[in-house]
Each structure stands twice: as C-alpha cells, then as structure tokens.
Amino acid sequence: MPGLMLLDTPSLYYRAFYGVPESVTSPDGMPVNAIRGLIDMIATLVRQHSPGELAACMDADWRPAFRVAAIPTYKAHRVAPGGGEETPDTLAPQVPVIERVLDAAGIARVDVPGYEADDVMGTLATRALGGVDIVTGDRDMFQLVDDDRPIRVLYTAKGVKNLQLVDEAAVTARYGVPGRSYADFATLRGDPSDGLPGVPGVGDKTAAALITRFGSLDALLRAVDEGGDLTAGQRAKLSAARDYLRVAPGVVRVARDAPVPDVDLALPVTPRDPGALDALAERYGLGGPLGRLSAALSRVSPG
C-alpha cells in the first residue's frame, strides 16, 4: 500500500540493539549494533513496502510532563538514578549517531518538544491524506488503526522481516474490541510496562466485554453513575478506580494534534549530505548497511 510510512524509531532501535550482537563494532571498537540493525530495518521496509513518504518519529520527551502530572507512576520504573531514561550503557552513545545518519541520508526525522514518538505518529497519521503504515512494536498504536482511511500497524513482535499486519479485524480478533476502542480497553486493563495500574480486578476479558457492551469508557462511567446494567462487583471496582479513570484516558490516548512542524517526508532520491554520510560510514563501519539502504531507496524513489 503506497503512502506514508511512520517509523516508531525508538521501538526499532531498541529491537535492533537486542537483536544484533554487541560484538558488531565500529573500527575503533564502539558497539554499533543498534545503528546497523536500524539501517538494515529501514532498507528492508522500504524495499518490501515501497512507501511514498517516510518519517522516522522520535521521542523529544520520553516521559512527557502532561502524562506524569496525570499519573505520576507513568514510566516511573524506567527513570535512571540520575534522572532521564534508563538506557543500556552501550546503546546511549549510538542514538546520536542514528540521528546523524538519518539526517545525512535525508530521511525525515520528526520530534516535538514535550511529546513522545507515539504522539508524532498519531498527529502525522491524522493529517495524512492517503494510506498510512505505522511500524512499531508498541500495542498502544493499535488505537490508530482505521480501515476507512486506511491506517494500519505493521507490528514488529516477530521482527521486521515477519511483520504482523494489524487492521481493524486483527484488533477485534485479538482483543474483542475495534481499533477505535483500543485506548479505552487499555485504560481499563492497564499496562504495567508503562506504569499504568488499570482497574484492579479488571483484566482483558472483562475490559473487552464492558467496552463492547457500553461502546466507550465515557458511556461506561455514565452507567456507573446512573445505575446502568452492571453487577455490584463491577460497579464497586469501577467506582473505586474513578480518580484513575478520570485522568488515565489523557495518558493512554496518543495525541492527534501535537504541534508537529511541516516537514518534507518524501523519500530521498540522493543523500542530503553525501560527504557526511561517507564520513559516518567510514567512522562507524557502516558501508554495508548504508549501501543496502541506498539501493532500496534508489529502487523506490522517482528517477
């Protein structure tokens, strides 16, 4: 499906970091496994899916203040002792190099102060006039799936070479709710990996059943207040979690109106800065993966 491809870049370079051995190093011995792995992932995605536009979405703020203000536990377990995100020692130095490679290659790198990559993807997907593929290992992006647009997720759980295509039918088959209801479902269920407690005693099946029956979290909460069709146990659990349910949707839902600047998302026909790209290839031993990326782009880009 030609159109816009959005890369959840942090998700992908973490996958590359853990999927490629740290013994893959630059000429001076610096691990470059995440860099090389990400470049090869992008080359594979471009070659196999031929997108018309491409955006490498980044975290300008991995733990935005507006989400922490709503739920202080949000990603709190990932905070390093000195502050900032806890990142493997050998990954942290690779991230600036990844940014330099993307910039020199001419692949749009998009971030927004105060927002996560999720919010950049949500905003760009909402703005897009054509089809959108979101490449991620984050289930939160399932809330953006929309067959009418169409917007779909290329889920990386089994790797970039074996992507799982997630459309509305796939979300419903897996979770029992349509994609547009996934955020409400996830709010009820919670997500320990993000520090979101959910409603105690409400798991996947109950969350899906409640959202399916009432149509939305807002409608469910009205039923709690107005004596709707709920068991005494369900009403008690939801009432006890009312403070959480009041603020959690603003944390779980990705922003669709973040102040993302207008950026040229066209695939580069030639590198933006060939000299810088050559220097990076030599300094970090990236000649092979950058050659594969160049070959993939040249087959897709006009001319």
Results as ranks from 00 to 15, higher is better:
residue 60 A to T: 10
residue 60 A to N: 09
residue 61 D to T: 14
residue 61 D to V: 10
residue 61 D to W: 10
residue 61 D to H: 10
residue 62 W to Y: 13
residue 63 R to H: 00
residue 63 R to I: 04
residue 63 R to F: 03
residue 63 R to K: 07
residue 63 R to P: 00
residue 64 P to N: 05
residue 65 A to E: 12
residue 65 A to Q: 14
residue 66 F to H: 14
residue 66 F to G: 05
residue 66 F to W: 09
residue 66 F to Q: 13
residue 67 R to N: 09
residue 68 V to N: 08
residue 68 V to T: 14
residue 68 V to Q: 02
residue 68 V to S: 06
residue 69 A to I: 09
residue 69 A to C: 02
residue 69 A to S: 12
residue 69 A to R: 14
residue 70 A to W: 03
residue 70 A to H: 01
residue 70 A to R: 01
residue 70 A to E: 04
residue 70 A to N: 02
residue 70 A to C: 06
residue 70 A to D: 01
residue 71 I to K: 03
residue 71 I to Q: 00
residue 71 I to H: 03
residue 71 I to Y: 01
residue 72 P to H: 03
residue 72 P to Y: 00
residue 73 T to L: 06
residue 73 T to K: 10
residue 73 T to D: 13
residue 73 T to F: 08
residue 75 K to V: 06
residue 76 A to R: 15
residue 76 A to D: 12
residue 76 A to S: 15
residue 76 A to K: 15
residue 76 A to T: 12
residue 77 H to E: 06
residue 77 H to S: 07
residue 77 H to T: 04
residue 77 H to K: 10
residue 77 H to W: 08
residue 78 R to P: 08
residue 79 V to S: 08
residue 79 V to R: 15
residue 79 V to W: 14
residue 80 A to C: 05
residue 80 A to Y: 06
residue 80 A to Q: 04
residue 80 A to G: 10
residue 80 A to L: 06
residue 81 P to C: 11
residue 82 G to S: 11
residue 83 G to D: 12
residue 83 G to M: 12
residue 83 G to R: 10
residue 84 G to Q: 08
residue 84 G to K: 11
residue 86 E to L: 15
residue 86 E to H: 15
residue 86 E to D: 15
residue 86 E to F: 11
residue 86 E to V: 08
residue 86 E to G: 11
residue 87 T to V: 13
residue 87 T to S: 04
residue 88 P to S: 06
residue 88 P to Y: 01
residue 88 P to W: 03
residue 88 P to L: 07
residue 89 D to T: 07
residue 90 T to R: 09
residue 90 T to F: 07
residue 90 T to W: 04
residue 90 T to G: 07
residue 90 T to S: 12
residue 91 L to Q: 07
residue 91 L to R: 00
residue 91 L to H: 00
residue 91 L to S: 03
residue 92 A to F: 01
